[in-house]
Every structure is written in structure tokens, then in C-alpha cells.
Simulated scan of single mutants.
Amino acid sequence: MNRENYKRRWVVGITGASGAIYGVTLCRELLKAGFHIHLVITDAGWRVLKEELGWDASHRQEALREAFRVAFEEEQLTYHPLNDIGASIASGSYRTEGMVVVPCSMGSLSSIANGASTNLLTRTADVMLKEGKPLLLVPRETPLHAIHLENMLKLSRLGVRIIPAMPAFYNGPQTLEDIVVFMVGKVMDNMGISNDIYKRWGE
């Protein structure tokens, strides 16, 4: 492998907040753009994938293969079980470009904000913080109480990008897909990845 290829690796985490479609759509767009994805999904994230997208959470490898068939065949996507604390991405010596947690539950956000590396997702987020790599969180919760806000402020002060799942309507969305790709496009913008998947103001 070319030693520069690590710059095409992103970690994507999907947690138990509503909005699993955001994480799945981001994965598909990153794969289309030629990135390699290291994917981590919490148990609650699997529950949301089942409830919102109809995934078979009892057969996780098969569900992922069905959703990202070509990526699996070409080894462009690596799935890491949540409890695999010895996975490559759990180490700061393994080079990636950064990590996105989308959607990000308040429980996962709290664990990250307080350095509680209790599973692979929160450990990998901790690695991003200690290594000074980009970490982007897409929280999806309402209303927000003071603890939520304080945790987000704490992380923001550490350089974490907080991108709430707040779709805009100035672009005149006509379908659910329009709303989803707006948010995914904004996330990709903050990842520093050029994209034209959503209609921008003034265009």
C-alpha cells in the first residue's frame, strides 16, 4: 500500500440517535468518492438501523454486505465490532484522516466528552482527540438540556466539529433525500471533501 493511502481512510461511527440514514448516506458518498471506510456501529445504532431502515440487525455482516455490496467485494469498507478494542483504529499509530460520528447520541457524546473509552467507538474518538485529528460529531436530539450543551461546548473547545442535524429549507427540498443529502453535504464540507450533492445558497 502506498504510504499516502491513509489519507483516504475515514472512520465512521453510527450510534443510537435517530437519523441512521445520515450515517448510511455519508458512507455511500465517501465510498463513491473513493475513500476507505472503517465503520463502527453501537448496539443501539443497530437497533435504529433496524427500526428506521429495516436492516436485519440479527445478521449484521449480511446486512452490511447487502447495503454496501460493492465496497465489501472490493475491500473498501472495514467493519469493526463494537467490542473489538484491539482493532487497528483503536491505536494512534494507525493512520487515518479523521472520524465522523453520525448520528451521535447524547450518551456517546457524553462518553467522548469525558474520556470514557468504554467501547471501540469512544476509544477511537479518544484517539482522534489525543492525536489531534479531525473529529466531527452530528448530534440528533431535541430538546437539549444543560448537560448536553455543556458537553458539546467542552468538545468544541477541544476542536471537535459539532454539526447538529439541522437541515435547511432555503434550497427548497422536495423529498426526504433532499433533506438528507443537505446534511451529508454539510458534513463532507466540514471534512474538507469537495462535493456537489446538495444545492448551495446562491446557486
Results as ranks from 00 to 15, higher is better:
residue 112 I to Q: 01
residue 13 G to S: 07
residue 79 Y to V: 02
residue 87 A to L: 03
residue 176 L to G: 15
residue 71 A to C: 08
residue 104 C to P: 02
residue 48 V to G: 11
residue 152 M to Q: 04
residue 64 L to Q: 06
residue 128 M to T: 02
residue 150 E to N: 08
residue 137 L to I: 03
residue 26 L to Q: 05
residue 137 L to R: 10
residue 47 R to F: 04
residue 70 V to A: 14
residue 132 G to S: 08
residue 172 G to T: 09
residue 77 L to N: 07
residue 17 A to P: 03
residue 167 P to I: 07
residue 44 A to H: 13
residue 80 H to S: 12
residue 101 V to C: 14
residue 98 G to R: 04
residue 115 G to W: 05
residue 1 M to H: 06
residue 122 T to S: 09
residue 36 H to K: 12
residue 49 L to S: 01
residue 86 G to R: 12
residue 135 L to G: 07
residue 137 L to C: 01
residue 200 R to L: 06
residue 50 K to W: 05
residue 105 S to I: 05
residue 39 L to Y: 05
residue 125 A to N: 05
residue 96 T to K: 14
residue 137 L to D: 00
residue 134 P to G: 14
residue 96 T to D: 07
residue 201 W to N: 13
residue 183 M to P: 05
residue 113 A to P: 02
residue 178 D to V: 13
residue 31 L to P: 00
residue 39 L to I: 00
residue 126 D to Q: 12
residue 9 R to N: 14
residue 143 P to R: 13
residue 118 T to H: 10
residue 202 G to C: 12
residue 116 A to G: 07
residue 118 T to K: 14
residue 144 L to C: 12
residue 76 Q to C: 06
residue 171 N to I: 10
residue 134 P to R: 15
residue 77 L to C: 08
residue 36 H to E: 13
residue 146 A to W: 03
residue 166 M to E: 15
residue 166 M to K: 12
residue 8 R to M: 13
residue 4 E to G: 06
residue 174 Q to F: 07
residue 10 W to E: 02
residue 194 S to E: 14
residue 43 D to N: 07
residue 176 L to D: 15
residue 51 E to A: 10
residue 64 L to I: 05
residue 135 L to W: 04
residue 104 C to I: 02
residue 30 L to E: 12
residue 100 V to A: 12
residue 161 R to P: 03
residue 80 H to R: 03
residue 181 V to E: 06
residue 106 M to P: 11
residue 29 E to V: 04
residue 183 M to Q: 14
residue 140 R to Q: 08
residue 86 G to K: 11
residue 51 E to I: 10
residue 169 F to Q: 01
residue 61 Q to P: 07
residue 195 N to Y: 06
residue 104 C to Q: 11
residue 125 A to P: 07
residue 115 G to I: 02
residue 139 P to K: 14
residue 68 F to W: 02
residue 97 E to D: 05
residue 73 E to V: 04
residue 112 I to K: 04
residue 75 E to K: 09
residue 140 R to T: 04
residue 63 A to L: 00
residue 130 K to I: 02
residue 125 A to F: 07
residue 176 L to F: 15
residue 88 S to D: 12
residue 13 G to H: 10
residue 189 D to H: 06
residue 79 Y to P: 04
residue 53 L to N: 14
residue 170 Y to T: 08
residue 110 S to Y: 14
residue 67 A to N: 07
